Simulated assay, not measured.
Amino acid sequence: MYDKLEQRSFLATLVLVTLAFALLMKPFFGPIFWAVAIAVIFNPVQQWLGRRIAGRPNLVSLITLVLCLVIVILPALGLISSLVAEGVTLYQRIQSGDVNPGQWLDRIRESFPVVETFLDRFDIDFNKLRESAISAVVGGSQFLASRAFGIGQNTFQFMLSFALMVYLAFFLLRDGHRLVELLIVALPLGDDRERLLMSKFAEVTRATVKGNLLVAVAQGALGGLIFWVLGISGALLWGVVMAIASLIPAVGAALVWLPAALYLVAVGDVVSAVVLVLFGVLVIGLADNLLRPILVGRDTKMPDYLVLLSTLGGIVLFGINGFVMGPLVAALFIAFWGIFIREFNDSAGDPFEHSGEADP
């Protein structure tokens, strides 16, 4: 009896200490999460280098981290700074009256009255929709402008988070396999289940970041390029917006280039509108279907509806980190239930596996 009380008291204290440690780490959630993501994504590179530079784990991890900085992180920081600069310029032009989003929408309504009629059937007031769209554009540009001011004020905080991420990524690249084995020993879920879950975690993280992010960059670059070719102002800004929109399955970059095509028709530039629509459908739209299977692979792809819901839910709960964390939580949900069904209800089979073959 006393031994059971001791054990339960220890487990309760363990839970409390773990929760306290989690709260302690909460301010550094972003840097920790992205350090883990870097270690998972670049683990194959680190292993490849390790086979060629045997016995030098510190050097291997350092080279891997430098490659990550040069190939991914520094270009991303440059792109973000350019985006903020474009947003500041747009906000200034809106404030000065050079850019009038309301005028754009009015021209679309005048050229396509069927749009307003269609919205009326669903009791959607075009004027309210117009005001919401204007507020979104102004608010977005104002947000970027405030970010530019905030970055200047919070340079130390940004540099601290960035340095912490790089520092943690180095040690996770070097000692990540040991930490995984330690977790497998510590967690009371069964070693086979834990290895399966760890494998799923790494698989989905690589698929989501490497696949979705690279596809988004490709679609954003293609969108920005066609905007620049057609002479649409703010091509860099809209290219980045399309890249961000591409993270949302099903709708993607069409949220940007389709309204732009409608506006071109409204102002009488039909040729440019046709070129934009054809390029959007045949090039930007197909980039996802062509690149995602190559970068991700069919075996890790979840149903489109689940990807859409988990991505949107993740962004709502976790902010920009949610485009990775949402699908990751969904994949772990499927993995846990798959394990449960296989081990506790063998007769039902695994509903997440579709062989496409009829039962004999």
Rank of each mutant, 00 (worst) to 15 (best):
R147F: 09
V88T: 10
A287Q: 13
A261F: 07
M198I: 05
I94H: 05
F143T: 13
Q47F: 00
A261Y: 09
N289L: 08
Y2V: 14
A218T: 14
N289Y: 10
T64G: 07
Q95I: 06
S96K: 07
V180Y: 10
I320Q: 08
F352D: 13
L160P: 01
L74Y: 15
V324N: 08
L230I: 08
S141K: 04
L332A: 10
L65E: 03
G223D: 05
D98H: 08
S61H: 12
L258Q: 07
P293C: 13
L129C: 06
I80Q: 15
D191I: 02
F333Q: 01
E181G: 02
M198A: 12
L317Q: 10
I32K: 00
V138L: 15
A253I: 06
G50H: 14
L282S: 03
R121V: 15
V256D: 11
G211I: 02
L183R: 01
Q157E: 14
P57R: 07
V296W: 08
S135C: 12
V15P: 00
L79C: 05
L291A: 13
S161Q: 10
Q47Y: 01
A221H: 02
L129P: 04
L168R: 09
R56N: 12
L317C: 15
P259I: 03
A245S: 13
R342S: 10
L164G: 00
I315C: 05
H354S: 01
D125N: 10
N58D: 11
S61I: 11
H354P: 01
L62E: 12
M302V: 02
L11W: 05
M25L: 13
I334W: 02
S111E: 06
D120M: 15
K26R: 05
R8L: 04
W238S: 13
A287K: 09
Q219P: 09
V114G: 08
L67N: 00
G150S: 15
K128C: 05
S146T: 13
L255K: 04
G239L: 10
F122R: 12
Q92D: 15
W337D: 07
I184H: 08
Y305G: 10
S141N: 08
A186I: 14
F171E: 09
M242H: 11
I339E: 12
V180G: 11
G252V: 12
V40Q: 01
F323C: 09
S347T: 01
R107I: 11
L197V: 03
A287V: 14
G285M: 07
Q153G: 12
F42H: 03
R292A: 12
A250R: 01
D125S: 14
L282R: 02
G211A: 12
V36Q: 00
R121G: 15
V241D: 02
V15E: 00
L214Q: 06
I232D: 03
V84E: 03
W257Q: 06
I315T: 04
Q95N: 11
L105T: 09
